[in-house]
């Protein structure tokens, strides 16, 4: 998968490395600000109340 992405990135090695970092950052941001907040309620230590 990663080699496929690498092959399809334009430019030379430096440009590709930069683009790859941007992709990693974009995916990380998506996880941090969209996916994880939705997963969070299922984390056990989020339960701090009684009877809930």
């Amino acid at each position: 998968m990663y080699s496929w992405i690498w092959r399809h990135l334009p430019g030379g090695t430096a440009v590709r490395a930069l683009l790859a970092l941007v992709l990693v950052a974009a995916v990380s941001a998506l996880l941090l600000f969209v996916v994880f907040p939705h997963v969070e309620p299922w984390v056990p230590f989020a339960d701090v109340t009684v009877d809930q």
Binding site: P44, F45, A46, V48, T49, V50
Partner: peptide, 15 residues
């Protein structure tokens, strides 16, 4: 005050 107990667990509540 209520919170979870032990830390990182939801097994009990610390009051």
């Amino acid at each position: 005050l209520t919170t979870c107990h032990p830390e990182y667990s939801a097994r009990q509540r610390l009051i």
